[in-house]
Design a protein around this nucleic acid. Structure first.
Lengths: 336, 336
DNA sequence: ATTAGTGACTAATGCGCATTAGACGACCGG
DNA sequence: CCGGTCGTCTAATGCGCATTAGTCACTAAT
C-alpha cells in the first residue's frame, strides 16, 4: 500500500479509503488508486487484515473419521464442493482438517479459535450427546451444524437439517404399499443423530402400521459389516423382504451378500440405498435410492454461516426432502 | 502476551523469548512464563505471527475438477488424510479449494500467494503441457507436485512420483504370461501426465513383446464412459482378452458392461483395475487391482513440502511401485 | 468580514507478535 | 580497581493494514 500511495501521490490512508469503498476520497482519486493497485497486482495481506480486526476470512471444516474409514464416500466431497462454491464468491478460504475422533475435533476448534485462524466453522455428523455445540457456544465460535435436528438448536448455532423422518416415512410407506411387512434397516454409526432419528422414525412408522417385524441394526458404514449383517438378518427365521441401507456402499455390499445367499433382488428382497451415487448403477439390478443434492446441502450451509458472520442470528433451515429414485432393486413383496 | 507478561512480572519480549525457545531468559523464568501461558490458555495469533514474518503456517491444496466429476473417488480423501497426518504434527493448516479448471487453479495460487495466505502448495494431477509449474516457479511459491514425472522437475519444485511405467510393465508382463495377446487400456483424461505415461509405457511394452493388438482409449474417468468404451471395444472384431482400467470406478462399470455383453470375467476377458478400493470387492468376481497406499503418498508429499519450507532444496522422491493384487478377475486367456 | 460547515486528504495509532538494540548487574582476568 | 564479557532482562521498532483524529482549503451563511 505504501507503493501504491507513492505511485498515486497520496497517503496510505487515502489508499485504504479508496480501495475499501470508504468515504473520504474523491471519485477521481479513488479510480486512480484503483488502477495503480491493479497495475501493481496488489492484494491485501490476510494476515494484516486479520490483525486489524477484520477476521481471518476463513472458515473451518473438520472431518472426524478414523483414517481407514474414509472410503468410497461421495457425500463429503460433494458437500465440500458445494460449500466452496459459496465461499469462493466471498473469497473466504476453507481450512480443512481430518482427525480421529470428536474430542480431537473439539481440540481443533479451540486451537483455531484461539489462534484466530477461522471466523466460523461447519460441523458435520452431529451426534446424540454431542459435546461440540456446547463447546462452540462457550467459545462463541460462529458455527452451523450440518445435518442436525431442526429443534435442538443451541443459542448461537445455526442448523441445516435434512428431513430424515419424512424421508423414512415415505420409504416405509412405499414398501408397505408394495406389500412388505418385514423390513430390516441396516443403519450407520449408532452415535450419530441422523442414525438415531431414522431408527426412531422407522419404529414409529412401523407402530402406526402394525408392522411387528421391523428392526434396525447399527453398523460402521463399511461394506464388510453391511455384508455380515445382511447375512445374519437373512439367515434368520422369517427373513425380511425389504432392506434399507443407510448409505450406498452398504447397499451395494448388502445386495451382493443377499444374492450370494440365493436371495434374488428384488424378487426375494427389495433393497433401498439411503444415498444415491454412481455406485448404485454399478450393480445389477440398479439400486433404488434416496437421492439428495449434497452439493446444495453444502451451499445452504455455507450461506447460513456467511449470514452468521455478517451478524445475522442463528436459525434452522431445512433442505428438500430426499427423493426416492425407483430403480430395479425394489418390487412387490414375495407372496403379497 | 501482554497479560502473560504482567502475570509473570516480566516484559513482553521476555515472554516471546521464553515461549519460542529463544535464548535471553533464564530457565527459571522460561518455565514460569510457560506455566502462566498455559494457565491463560494462550495461543499465538497466526495473523500476528504471519505479519511478523513467520509465514502463514498453512499450505494450500487445490482440486481442479468440474463439480459433477467429484464422484466416488477414494483416492483424494485418502491422499488428503495422509497429508493431514503429517501437517498436523507441525500444526500446519490445510487450505482447501475446489475449482473448475487449471486456469482457475492458477488464479487461486496467485491470490493465495499475494495475500500471504499459504507458505506452499501441493499440486495434483500434473498434465502434459502444464502451466502450473512455470507459474509456481515464477511466483517463487514453494510447491510439491504429486504424481509428476521424476525427471521434468522445475528448479523450485519437488516431485513425488509413482512409478506408473514400472507398474504398467509388470501388469503387461503378468497378462502376457497368462497368454493374453490382445489388450485394451481404458485410460483416464488425455491431458494428464500419468495417463500419457501409462499409454506410452503400454505401447513400449507391447512393442517389446510384439503385441500388435494393444491400444489405449482415453476417457473422463466416469462409469458411463467406461461402460460405453468397453462395449465398443468388445464388440469389434477380434476383441481384447484383457482390459486395464485406469481407476476402480471404470473397472467396475466396465466389468459390468462386459458381463452384460455376454463376456464372462475372467473366462472371456480379464479385468485389471488401476486403483484398489472397497469397490473392487463389491462385484463378482472381485477385481484384481493395482494397490497403492494413497495415504502414504500424501504423507510423503507433505513431508517433502515441509522440507522445502524448512529451506531444503527441491528434489524428486518416488513412492513404492503399486502392487498387483490378484483376485478373481484375471485368468488365463481363452485359447491360450 | 467573520464563522460555521463541508469535502478531501494526511498523520498517528493500534492490532499481536518477533526481533534488534540497548540497559544493568555479576563475574572474571589482569 | 578497572575494562571487558556474559547472562538476563527491557525498550523500541516494524510487519501491513484499518481507523480515528486531526489539517487544510474552500464555500455558504450570517
Amino acid at each position: 500500500m505504501k507503493d501504491i500511495a507513492r505511485h498515486a501521490g497520496v497517503s496510505q490512508s487515502a489508499v485504504s479509503f479508496a480501495l475499501n469503498g470508504r468515504p473520504g476520497v474523491s471519485e477521481d482519486t479513488r479510480e486512480r488508486v484503483r488502477r495503480v493497485a491493479e497495475d501493481l497486482g496488489w492484494r491485501p495481506s490476510t494476515a494484516a487484515r486479520a490483525l486489524s480486526g477484520e477476521g481471518a476470512a476463513t472458515v473451518g471444516f473438520v472431518l472426524a473419521r478414523p483414517a481407514d474409514t474414509l472410503g468410497v464416500d461421495s457425500f463429503f466431497l460433494q458437500l465440500v464442493s458445494g460449500i466452496q462454491e459459496v465461499l469462493a464468491e466471498r473469497h473466504l478460504g476453507l481450512l480443512f482438517q481430518v482427525v480421529e475422533d470428536v474430542s480431537d475435533e473439539c481440540a481443533v476448534y479451540r486451537r483455531w479459535w484461539a489462534e484466530h485462524r477461522v471466523d466460523g466453522v461447519l460441523v458435520v455428523d452431529p451426534r446424540t450427546d454431542d459435546p461440540r455445540p456446547d463447546l462452540l457456544d462457550e467459545l462463541g465460535l460462529p458455527a452451523v451444524v450440518i445435518g442436525g435436528a431442526p429443534d435442538d438448536r443451541h443459542p448461537g448455532l445455526s442448523t441445516v437439517w435434512a428431513d430424515d423422518a419424512g424421508a423414512m416415512a415415505s420409504v416405509v410407506e412405499g414398501l408397505y404399499a408394495l406389500g412388505h411387512r418385514r423390513i430390516a434397516h441396516i443403519a450407520g454409526l449408532p452415535g450419530l443423530a441422523h442414525t438415531e432419528r431414522r431408527i426412531r422414525t422407522l419404529r414409529a412408522e412401523a407402530g402406526r402400521r402394525d408392522l411387528t417385524e421391523v428392526r434396525s441394526v447399527t453398523t460402521d458404514y463399511s461394506d464388510t459389516e453391511a455384508a455380515a449383517v445382511t447375512r445374519r438378518v437373512l439367515e434368520g427365521a422369517a427373513p425380511p423382504t425389504a432392506l434399507i441401507y443407510d448409505n450406498d456402499v452398504m447397499a451395494v455390499a448388502g445386495a451382493g451378500a443377499a444374492t450370494e445367499l440365493g436371495f434374488s433382488v428384488p424378487a426375494d428382497v427389495s433393497v433401498v440405498s439411503w444415498e444415491d451415487s454412481a455406485l448404485c448403477r454399478m450393480v445389477k439390478p440398479w439400486l433404488s435410492a434416496l437421492s439428495r443434492d449434497s452439493a446444495e446441502f453444502g451451499r445452504t450451509a455455507a450461506r447460513e454461516l456467511i449470514a452468521l458472520l455478517d451478524g445475522g442470528s442463528a436459525r434452522a433451515v431445512g433442505v428438500p426432502v430426499p427423493r426416492l429414485v425407483e430403480r430395479g432393486s425394489t418390487g412387490v413383496a414375495r407372496g403379497a
